[in-house]
């Protein structure tokens, strides 16, 4: 069985004077179903790694295999398609559309990937149920708490059954109690077999993951914390 993610010697250099090497040879394997946290101080290359993993950015060099297929060098059209169908994003700022209900926000994730219109609402309802928001289907983001909004965002990321759930500081805008609840939802999602990569600077968030790696100066290091077997 292939790994969900395999990175081999990924580098990312931002040109121009002076060139900045944000990633300097990242090697990483994330088996399917793994819950991984990537930690690091700001400026260490977390965001760059997140963009590369999310196919929002193209590595300068190296191999990135998603589900065993190299996606490091694919064109714009294919990257958009893979992004939409294989990767679910959860952002620190939630990025919900303010004028759409929770259900419509989740349905937005199915807009570009040829899901039949008739089935979108049904699927979206199912994932919203999964994150415990059955009672808030038609609520607008402005009327929801931060925790609820982030759960809508998780539902949106999950609705296409992605190979990778990529979370960028998912609790950065939440108080600790709400953050705990959201991390609980992530843990629950993980138990269903979902591969999750969380990028954070918060050790408490990282502690919920099975394994933590630390990025420092563009290079990955095994965590100094005890690692789950």
């Amino acid at each position: 069985m292939t790994a969900a993610i395999t990175l081999h010697g990924i580098t990312r250099t931002f040109p121009g004077p002076p060139p900045i090497e944000a990633l300097r040879g990242i090697d990483l394997t994330v088996p399917r179903g793994r819950y991984l946290a990537i930690m690091g101080p700001s400026g260490a290359g977390k965001s760059t790694l997140m963009n590369v993993l999310g196919l929002l950015d193209r590595p300068t060099d190296g191999v990135y295999e998603l589900d065993g297929v190299d996606v490091a060098g694919i064109g714009e059209a294919e990257r958009s398609a893979v992004r939409g169908q294989r990767i679910g994003f959860v952002f620190q700022a939630f990025h919900l559309l303010p004028h759409r209900s929770a259900l419509e926000n989740v349905m937005l994730a199915q807009l570009y990937n040829r899901s039949p219109r008739s089935k979108r609402a049904m699927r979206s309802r199912r994932v919203l149920e999964l994150v415990g928001l059955t009672h808030r289907l038609h609520a607008l983001p402005a009327t929801m708490s931060g925790g609820e909004r982030q759960r809508v965002a998780i539902a949106r990321a999950m609705v296409n059954e992605p190979s990778l759930l990529l979370c960028d500081e998912p609790t950065g805008n939440l108080d600790s109690a709400t953050a705990d609840a959201v991390l609980g939802v992530l843990a629950e999602v993980h138990t269903s077999g979902q591969t999750i990569v969380v990028i954070t600077h918060d050790p408490q968030v990282a502690a919920r993951a099975e394994r933590t790696v630390v990025i420092r100066d563009g290079l990955l290091h095994a965590s100094e914390h005890a690692e789950a077997p």
Partner: peptide
């Protein structure tokens, strides 16, 4: 039938109705 990419993903699509 939409062609598939090498990665197995179907090309993104934005239907007229959408």
């Amino acid at each position: 039938r939409a062609r598939r990419f090498g990665s197995g993903a179907e090309p993104s699509h934005f239907a007229l109705w959408d």
